[in-house]
Computed example of a mutant assay.
Amino acid sequence: MQKTEIERLFSYLDETATYLEKNWTSTYLEGLAEAGENLFQKDVCQPLTDEKVKALADFLEDVSSDSEYEPEDIRKAYQLAVLKGMKGAVQSHHSMTPDAVCLFLSYLVNKVIHKKEVVTLLDLAVGSGNLVSALLNHSTTKMVAKGFEVDETLVKLAFVNANLQKHELDLFHQDSIEPLAIPEVDLVVTDLPVGFYPKDDVASSYNLNAAEGHSFIHHLMIEQALKKTKDGGFLFFVVPNFLFESEQAQSLHQFIKKEATILGLLKLPDSMFQAEQHGKSIFMLQKKGSDIIQPQQALLAELPSFSKKEALADMIQQINKWFSSELGIM
């Protein structure tokens, strides 16, 4: 049976990453970035023996024909390989936004940007680039994106991912809680890392700095995102369901009320998460500004399982109705 383009690409990425893990000084994820780089350059870039270069060139020959791959095929193949690599990685921050969530966020983002000719997008925790590239692939408007990532392996994966998909994405290997020398953007979309932020000296300049002990990184990132969003700009976060249950939740809620309008909170299906305490939601905000429409009521809903097509179609209809009646967005 003939392989699909996604299967061909995944096989190439997986075989090359596995080979480099065994025959070079790289982890599987690092090997994956190298595999992507070879595919982008259409050549073997690693300084290896002739025999090993030949083996890598053979893998490359299977996929680097003249056929152009669709960006979504590249993203999905890359995503599958990264997921495989993350199973073997020990770092807790190595996790990926599920595909269904990326596509649902694309739908929400397209609702709010539909009238703009060009949109500037910021992701403060870009990871391996899966979420940002899904948004770029599905955007109905020209999108210019910036992404920050503190992990060196992940930022390299995101860089190669963007190159292969020919995306306009500026990547910064930097802790995004530290001061950022970038202009304000129209839109922020981030799957927030959850936990404590270790640099108390950096956190001390934030309104949401904890009175004692470490501050929550997910709180600081929301504040940084609002600081970097234009007046009237939109923000979409993937947040833990317990966001407003911690001892620092009250100050977070007060800060958000002062700076933004809460548009909605959409609880993701429980079936997506291994345990209830890992459950997440999509948190929708609009930064305050002179022309914004204050909704009479926020959009609060529990999303059905993404595999239940009819229930999901019904939910999307209800969400479309909310955008139309509350924000005047068709």
Score class of each variant (00 low, 15 high):
residue 3 K to D: 07
residue 16 T to F: 14
residue 305 S to W: 06
residue 72 E to I: 12
residue 43 D to K: 15
residue 147 G to K: 07
residue 132 V to P: 01
residue 269 P to D: 04
residue 125 A to Y: 08
residue 120 T to N: 11
residue 173 H to I: 10
residue 278 H to W: 11
residue 221 M to Y: 04
residue 124 L to Q: 15
residue 251 S to E: 13
residue 100 A to L: 12
residue 50 D to R: 07
residue 43 D to M: 08
residue 266 L to D: 02
residue 133 S to L: 07
residue 82 V to S: 13
residue 197 Y to L: 15
residue 57 A to G: 12
residue 32 L to H: 06
residue 9 L to N: 12
residue 134 A to L: 00
residue 183 P to T: 09
residue 58 D to E: 12
residue 314 D to M: 04
residue 124 L to R: 10
residue 258 K to P: 07
residue 1 M to G: 09
residue 295 P to V: 06
residue 132 V to E: 09
residue 164 L to M: 03
residue 189 V to E: 01
residue 200 D to M: 12
residue 178 E to H: 06
residue 56 L to Y: 08
residue 176 S to H: 12
residue 147 G to T: 02
residue 169 L to S: 09
residue 12 Y to F: 11
residue 55 A to N: 04
residue 142 K to A: 05
residue 68 E to Q: 15
residue 266 L to W: 02
residue 86 M to P: 03
residue 77 A to N: 05
residue 135 L to N: 02
residue 102 C to W: 00
residue 30 E to I: 06
residue 284 M to K: 07
residue 15 E to V: 03
residue 103 L to E: 10
residue 198 P to A: 01
residue 139 S to C: 03
residue 245 E to V: 10
residue 69 Y to D: 14
residue 196 F to R: 00
residue 274 Q to A: 07
residue 67 S to C: 15
residue 44 V to N: 11
residue 19 Y to P: 06
residue 31 G to V: 12
residue 22 K to Q: 13
residue 179 P to I: 04
residue 148 F to S: 14
residue 279 G to H: 02
residue 261 T to M: 10
residue 311 A to V: 02
residue 87 K to Q: 05
residue 303 L to M: 03
residue 57 A to K: 12
residue 41 Q to S: 06
residue 199 K to P: 08
residue 31 G to M: 11
residue 104 F to P: 03
residue 41 Q to N: 12
residue 172 F to D: 14
residue 54 K to E: 02
residue 72 E to Q: 07
residue 84 K to W: 04
residue 37 E to P: 00
residue 110 N to L: 02
residue 279 G to M: 01
residue 252 L to I: 01
residue 101 V to G: 03
residue 187 L to C: 12
residue 252 L to A: 02
residue 146 K to F: 12
residue 44 V to M: 05
residue 67 S to I: 15
residue 37 E to F: 03
residue 47 P to S: 07
residue 159 F to H: 15
residue 7 E to P: 14
residue 84 K to E: 01
residue 49 T to D: 11
residue 281 S to Y: 00
residue 235 L to F: 04
residue 295 P to G: 09
residue 290 S to L: 03
residue 257 K to T: 08
residue 146 K to P: 08
residue 95 S to C: 13
residue 116 K to F: 07
residue 76 K to C: 14
residue 322 W to Y: 07
residue 189 V to I: 11
residue 179 P to T: 01
residue 185 V to A: 03
residue 167 H to M: 09
residue 35 A to R: 01
residue 160 V to E: 13
residue 185 V to P: 11
residue 263 L to W: 10
residue 234 F to R: 10
residue 245 E to Y: 02
residue 184 E to D: 08
residue 192 L to M: 03
residue 202 V to L: 00
residue 74 I to E: 09
residue 42 K to W: 00
residue 216 F to R: 00
residue 154 L to N: 09
residue 287 K to W: 08
residue 114 H to C: 15
residue 179 P to E: 09
residue 103 L to P: 09
residue 157 L to T: 02
residue 229 T to A: 07
residue 203 A to E: 05
residue 301 A to Y: 05
residue 96 M to A: 13
residue 117 E to H: 10
residue 113 I to A: 02
residue 257 K to M: 14
residue 82 V to T: 03
residue 54 K to L: 13
residue 202 V to D: 02
residue 277 Q to I: 14
residue 171 L to K: 11
residue 60 L to T: 10
residue 225 A to W: 02
residue 171 L to V: 14
residue 220 L to Y: 01
residue 293 I to E: 09
residue 7 E to N: 13
residue 77 A to R: 04
residue 280 K to F: 05
residue 176 S to A: 15
residue 316 I to N: 06
residue 297 Q to D: 09
residue 210 A to E: 00
